[in-house]
Each structure stands twice: as structure tokens, then as C-alpha cells.
Write a protein that binds this DNA or RNA. Structure first.
Lengths: 133, 133
DNA sequence: TGCATGGTTGCACTATAGTGCAAGTGTTAT
DNA sequence: ATAACACTTGCACTATAGTGCAACCATGCA
């Protein structure tokens, strides 16, 4: 089920949050799809928080999500064309405090844990592991 | 007095509002500078509302403002370069309900009231005239 | 000086958005 | 079945954002 009328400001609304911008920037640079636990280990934010931000990005039409077993992979939506243009702009924004660079480094490290191009492990950062409850 | 650290998400925050997007879109297309009363007559929104949105756009670094007598002229900021890129993206967004087209028409009509390239009259739309208080 | 006028802002109100906790869903492995 | 785990979500709370009213400031003109 999709929205019929897409509000232009909803796209900017979606990017008007630092956590969501971090997610989008990561995915612009890396291009690849990624699951939630990889993002948790890259951004060092709790899974429930990222899960909700991912949902917002999905609803804004910037991400598409696909379930594979226990994992859910998210990827950037690139159509219509102005989205590509938007991503180029996002990529051109200054990394004022080096946060995107740090995210990217952790993300690259984390991707090495994949096997066959697919995530095989859960959250690695101790502080953000799901409490077995 | 300017902010030292510019938050990237502040730019998107600034565009995450329909009224502000309408202002920016008008100015992207028309290029020219414009005063508040011209915007009131173009967007048909009360002056106090637009005045506040203009302030937010100014603080986000998207507009610069200059006072000339009783009028304050606002123009788009075009540096750094990614702002031009951003405006191109904004211009590419769909005009889902024709609102930008309508704004633009009223704006063009309103510009005809200028003399010597400068606004000489106040708010023309009856409903939004400042009540003489 | 007085007043109309272009524009701004303090205040109160309301709506919305982000967060953490804890409980929940669905899938895989034992 | 049972447990572990990747991910999601209902609830309560807090912070922030948008709005309208009315008062205000600043400029130009009679």
C-alpha cells in the first residue's frame, strides 16, 4: 500500500534528523544493502532506535526493505531521478565533526564479518546487544 | 554573529515545512529578491507567519536579508556550492497539487506592481492586510 | 509630532517528533 | 518443544515546532 500524494516536504522531513542522515550517508557511500545489526554496530545506536528511523525513511520513500530469514536488508531507493540528485547533495555536505567518517570506518570493518555477501552475525557492540529477555 | 558548527540536518530541517518549501521554490524559479509583502500576496499566508519562516530560513543559511527603508528584501544564498545543487533538487520535485504553480503565478502578477525594480506598495490581498492597530 | 505602514516578536496553545523501556513477532537452531 | 536471536512496536514521557493573537519596533510621510 503506497501513498498516492507524495508530499515534497516529507522527503526533507525524513532527512531532518541526524541519525537518519547518518544512515543515508552511509548507504550513499557504500551503495550496498545492509541489515539492522550492521547499522547498530556502525552507528553505535540501539536497535529499537534505528529500527524506527529506518521505518520513517521507508515511509518517506528513501529506503526499501527486504526480509531474508532473520535479517532485514535495507537499500536506497534511486527512483525517481531527483532522489539521485538529492543523494549527491547529501554527499556534498560537510562532515563537520567527523561523525560520518567514523560511521563509515566502523561500517567497513563490520562488513568484513559477512560470509557470501550476507550478514551471519548479530550485534557485536556489547553495549547494544539485545538483552535476552 | 554566526554559528561556528553548521549542522547538516539543519538545512533539511529548514526545508521540512511546506510553507518554507513554497518560499524557496518561488525564489529558485524567480531568482530575484523579494520583500515580505510580495510573499504574503503570493502565498496568501499572514505576514507574521511568513516572517517567522523567513527567519528560520535565514538562520539555516538559505536566505540573506537586507533592509531598504520600510521593506526587507530576501534573496537565496548560493554558496557553498552544494546549496545550488540542493536548489536544483528542490526544483525537480513534483508539484503534486499545483500549489507551486499557483504561487508562481501570483508572484509574477505581484512583481508587476514594482516601480524601478522595487516594491512600492504593501500587502494587497485584503484578508492579509495588517490590521491598523 | 503624529500617524500609517512594513515587518517582527512575546506569549499561550496545540500538535508532532524523538527516546527508552519492556514486551512482542517471526525465524532459525538445538 | 525450547531457546536464542534479529527485529519491531505499544506506551509513557519529554522536547521541539508551528500557529494565532496582539503588541511591538522602525521607517517614511503629512
Amino acid at each position: 500500500m503506497q501513498m498516492i500524494t507524495i508530499q515534497s516536504d516529507a522527503i526533507f522531513q525524513a532527512l531532518a534528523d541526524e541519525t537518519r542522515l547518518r544512515i543515508i550517508r552511509l548507504k550513499i557511500v557504500m551503495g550496498d544493502e545492509s541489515c539492522l545489526c550492521e547499522l547498530v554496530d556502525s552507528l553505535l545506536e540501539p536497535s529499537y532506535k534505528l529500527s524506527r528511523h529506518l521505518k520513517i525513511l521507508r515511509q518517506a520513500g528513501l529506503l526499501s526493505s527486504q526480509k531474508e530469514g532473520r535479517w532485514v536488508y535495507h537499500r536506497l531507493v534511486t527512483k525517481p531521478a531527483y532522489l539521485e540528485q538529492l543523494y549527491a547533495t547529501v554527499q556534498a555536505l560537510p562532515d563537520s565533526n567527523g561523525i560520518y567518517h567514523a560511521d563509515l570506518k566502523r561500517f567497513r570493518d563490520r562488513l568484513r564479518l559477512r560470509e557470501g555477501g550476507r550478514c551471519q552475525v548479530g550485534i557485536q557492540s556489547e553495549a547494544f546487544k539485545t538483552e535476552a529477555g
